[in-house]
Simulated assay, not measured.
Amino acid sequence: MTIKSLNDLFIHALSDVYSAEKQLTRALPKLARAAEQEDLVNAFKTHLEETQGQIERLDKLVESTPEVRIKRIKCLAMEGLIEEGQEVIDAIESGPVRDAGLIAAAQKVEHYEIATYGTLCALAEKLGYTKAKKLLGETLEEEKNTDNKLTLIAEQKVNAKAAA
């Protein structure tokens, strides 16, 4: 896709995050199965439901913004982040150390999504896509909340067990 305008950049970033979210819906069940700590398993399952809602929100954004059409691209960044999560599963035996590694891998994903949705909100505002900015902002807040939840699980439960 040739990017010649701010709108083109917005569409490219939106298409990229759409691909990222789709990839994540396939990865989160694997993370949930690989985790041992109950709160972590539940956090991955909850985030899967949120991610499915985020995809629906992106679809709604496209439907409500005629100037925006998602392109078919593959998010290589998410592909790499998911691969890192798989490496944790493959390299670390089930238990607290693996759970700590899964949290680290998941937080890398969350930080990528927070950066992406923050950028999309700024671009939507500049382009005058008010409804799109609102929808993207809702997802941004969910991503921040998930990151905070993962931090709490790590700090209050997993890291101490992993260190023991």
Rank of each mutant, 00 (worst) to 15 (best):
T2Q: 06
I3M: 01
K4D: 12
L6S: 12
L6K: 07
D8N: 01
D8I: 00
L9W: 08
I11L: 09
I11F: 00
I11M: 12
H12M: 13
H12N: 15
H12R: 13
S15I: 11
D16P: 11
D16C: 12
V17N: 14
S19T: 03
K22R: 12
K22D: 09
Q23I: 05
T25V: 09
R26L: 07
A27V: 01
L28A: 04
L28D: 05
P29E: 09
K30R: 11
K30N: 05
K30F: 04
L31C: 01
A32Q: 04
A32C: 08
R33Y: 09
R33D: 15
E36W: 05
E38R: 13
E38T: 11
D39T: 06
V41F: 04
V41C: 01
N42Q: 12
N42K: 15
N42G: 10
A43H: 07
F44W: 00
F44K: 00
L48C: 03
E49M: 10
E50Y: 10
T51S: 00
T51I: 01
Q52Y: 09
Q54W: 03
R57L: 03
D59A: 14
V62P: 01
T65S: 15
P66S: 11
P66L: 09
E67D: 15
V68F: 04
V68A: 12
V68S: 13
I70E: 13
I70S: 09
R72C: 11
C75Q: 01
A77W: 00
A77V: 04
M78R: 01
E79I: 02
E79F: 04
L81R: 04
I82V: 06
I82W: 01
E83K: 10
E84S: 06
E84A: 01
G85W: 08
E87N: 13
E87A: 13
I89P: 02
I89Y: 01
I92G: 02
E93N: 08
S94K: 11
S94R: 12
P96D: 12
P96T: 11
V97C: 10
R98V: 07
D99P: 05
D99K: 02
A100W: 15
A100L: 15
I103R: 05
A104F: 11
A105D: 02
A106Y: 12
A106E: 11
A106H: 09
K108M: 11
V109H: 04
H111T: 06
H111S: 04
Y112P: 00
Y112V: 02
T116A: 07
Y117S: 00
G118Y: 03
L120V: 10
L120D: 09
L120S: 12
L120Y: 09
C121I: 09
C121T: 15
C121F: 09
A122M: 02
A122F: 07
A122V: 05
A124T: 06
A124M: 07
E125C: 01
E125P: 03
K126D: 11
L127A: 10
G128R: 00
T130Q: 12
K131Y: 02
L135K: 00
L136R: 05
L136P: 06
G137A: 01
G137D: 00
E138M: 08
E141Y: 04
E142L: 02
E143F: 05
N145W: 08
T146A: 07
N148Q: 15
N148W: 14
N148L: 15
N148M: 13
K149H: 14
T151I: 08
A154T: 13
V158E: 04
K161V: 04
A162K: 08
